[in-house]
Simulated scan of single mutants.
Amino acid sequence: MSVQYKVTERINPNDVTLPKKYYARIINGDDVSFEELVGIISKVSSLNYGTVLGAIGTLLEVIEMQLAFGRQVRLSNLGTLFLTLNSEGVERPEEYRSDRIKQARIRFRPGARLKRLAKTLKYEKVSTASDVAPAP
């Protein structure tokens, strides 16, 4: 199976004065819902739907809890979830107050298996939206 892409004209976001160029843009299929993912896992494993639903639901709660404690969550070959902060700078550390923190972001660093996937993908150019194959 190949990742489908199309070619689109875009401006350079780093310098909008440069002429537009053509870039590859992935054609995303429809989303896989949480419920559909649970159903697929239950079909390809010996676990029933309810067990998978409960396990993933509990995993989400534990991830939220651990991130709130400031911990990185390593999910083996899947990757690592961690928090970063967006904040204002100050001249001296003693001037810093928590109200300078604008927001926290949850980041994901893929693990070895997903990195390997990204390196081995095959690509198929699609000229129009009508040429796009339906998702499996």
Rank of each mutant, 00 (worst) to 15 (best):
R92W: 06
R97I: 14
E91N: 15
Y96M: 13
D131V: 10
S127C: 01
S87F: 08
I106H: 03
K6C: 13
M1A: 13
V32F: 02
M65Y: 13
G29F: 00
S127W: 00
R92Q: 12
V52L: 01
P110L: 12
L114W: 02
A68T: 10
F108I: 01
L18A: 14
I63T: 14
S98I: 08
S76V: 10
R97V: 15
L67V: 14
V132M: 07
E124H: 07
L117Q: 10
I41L: 05
V132Y: 05
L47M: 11
R74S: 11
D131H: 09
T17E: 14
I11P: 10
P13R: 02
S33R: 05
R107H: 09
R92N: 12
V38Q: 00
S33H: 06
E88P: 02
K21M: 11
T120L: 06
A118W: 03
E61I: 13
V90R: 10
D30N: 13
L117K: 06
N48R: 04
L37T: 01
T128S: 14
R109D: 08
F34C: 02
I41W: 03
T51I: 09
S87R: 07
R10Q: 09
L85P: 03
Y5I: 14
G54H: 04
F69A: 14
R74K: 11
N86V: 13
S46H: 13
Q103G: 10
G50S: 13
L81M: 04
L75M: 14
R25K: 15
S127L: 11
E94P: 14
L78M: 13
Q103H: 11
N48A: 07
E94W: 05
G54F: 02
R107M: 07
F82E: 07
G70T: 12
L67Y: 07
I63Y: 01
I106P: 01
E36D: 08
S98G: 14
V44G: 04
S76C: 09
G50Q: 09
K115R: 12
V90L: 06
M1E: 10
I40T: 06
Y96F: 15
K20N: 04
Y23S: 11
T8Y: 02
K102N: 07
G57H: 03
P110C: 12
M65K: 15
P136E: 06
E94A: 13
M1Y: 02
K122M: 06
G54A: 15
N14A: 15
V62H: 11
S46K: 10
D31L: 09
F34V: 09
G39Y: 00
V90N: 10
I101N: 10
P110N: 08
Y5Q: 07
I101R: 03
A68R: 10
Q72M: 12
R25I: 09
R25C: 12
G50H: 02
T8L: 10
S87M: 12
Q103M: 09
L37V: 02
R105G: 05
Q103C: 08
R107Q: 13
S42P: 07
S130P: 06
S127M: 09
V126F: 06
P93I: 12
L60V: 15
R109W: 04
S87A: 15
P136V: 04
A24M: 12
V132C: 04
A129H: 03
I63W: 06
E91I: 13
